[in-house]
Simulated scan of single mutants.
Amino acid sequence: MDDIRPKLPAKPERFMDILRQHIRKQGLSYRTEQTYTHWIKRFIHFHRLKHPADMGAAEVEAFLTYLAVQGLCATNTQRVALNAIVYLYKQFLDREIPDLDFKLAKRQRRLPVVYSREEVFAVLSHLQGLFRLQIELMYGSGLRSAELLSLRIKDVDFSSNNIFVRGGKGNKDRTTLLPKGIAEDIQRQVKHVSLLHQQDLLAGYGSVYLPDALDRKYPNAAKQLAWQYLFPANSISQCPRSGIY
């Protein structure tokens, strides 16, 4: 359930809750919220829980230099941390940050690792069942792991051999191809989920998390088969926001 935003108090008082509320009002994705709050927490703990309003450029420079020198972080990691802190001061605290002078992380140039077809098939030969199907779908459709686990049954269009990715990287939607070689296996997975869903409904369960407050707009959608995950969890779980199983 890592893709579900935790519920905030109606009138948040804690610093991080107020920050999260501000991020959501700006319409940023949950991945961005997670990243920003992670680095802002690290920044605050680095300075021994000193309030960001009582810190300035010197503290920001010290933290970013630490990441490059002692933390040995990559360039992109340092850049992400900088973006989070800039958001904290410019957007959240409404304070300008002067030009910063800090040690830049070294840019490491590495060649990307790309498996050959033979290597991919060698990996698949050691997999079976559901795990093999998931890897085949990721390889054939170019899905990220988070996108794979977020797929709903309604996102697979067998008539056009398309998969609709909702809220992917950058909180953007896109389409990708459904590999024809595993289309029948995906259909069998849908039938399996359908039977499992019917059993859950009979047991008093069967509700699924709906994004963007759709549960208020469509009260019955959470129990419809179309909204069920294509690869559900192995056991009944509790929604961290609603508390419903």
Rank of each mutant, 00 (worst) to 15 (best):
E61R: 02
I44P: 00
V114F: 13
V69G: 01
T75A: 13
I135Y: 05
V123M: 14
E59V: 05
S125Y: 14
V86L: 13
L143C: 07
Q70I: 07
A57E: 02
G71F: 01
Q108Y: 13
K103R: 15
H126M: 13
Y87S: 01
Q70V: 10
T75D: 12
I40M: 07
Q91A: 12
R48G: 00
H22W: 06
Q108M: 10
Y89E: 09
L93Y: 10
W39K: 02
G56R: 00
R79M: 05
T32W: 04
H22M: 09
D17N: 03
I135R: 02
R95F: 11
M138H: 08
K25V: 11
F121Q: 13
D17P: 00
K41C: 11
Q21C: 12
C73L: 04
Y139I: 06
A53Y: 06
P112S: 11
I44E: 04
I23L: 15
V123P: 03
H45W: 09
T65R: 00
L143G: 05
P98H: 10
G56H: 02
Y139L: 04
M138A: 13
K41P: 06
I23M: 11
K25M: 12
E118L: 13
A62K: 01
Q91Y: 07
V120D: 09
S141I: 13
R109A: 10
D99N: 12
A62T: 03
L28E: 04
K106Q: 14
L124M: 08
I18Q: 05
Y87D: 01
H45R: 11
A58W: 02
R144K: 10
L111D: 05
R95P: 12
E96F: 03
Y89W: 07
Y115H: 15
D17M: 03
R117L: 15
L137Q: 02
I97T: 03
R132E: 15
R107I: 05
S116P: 08
G140Q: 11
L137F: 07
D101P: 04
R107V: 06
L133I: 10
V69M: 03
F121G: 03
L137E: 03
S141W: 08
E33Q: 08
E61M: 03
Y89Q: 07
K50P: 04
T77L: 06
E136V: 10
Q134I: 08
A68L: 02
G71C: 03
K90T: 13
F63A: 00
L130Q: 09
G129C: 06
V69W: 01
T37M: 11
L72F: 09
P98W: 07
I40L: 12
A84C: 08
V86F: 12
S125N: 15
R107Y: 11
R95C: 12
H51E: 08
H45M: 09
R132S: 10
N83S: 11
E59A: 04
A122C: 12
S141E: 12
S125M: 15
F131I: 08
T75H: 15
R95T: 12
F131E: 15
R144H: 12
T75G: 10
I18T: 01
V60P: 00
L124S: 05
H47G: 01
K90F: 14
L100G: 03
H22F: 09
K103L: 12
H47K: 03
L88C: 04
G56V: 06
L82R: 04
Q34V: 03
E136S: 11
E136Y: 09
K90N: 15
T77I: 05
D101Y: 14
E118I: 13
L143N: 05
R109L: 13
K50C: 08
A105F: 06
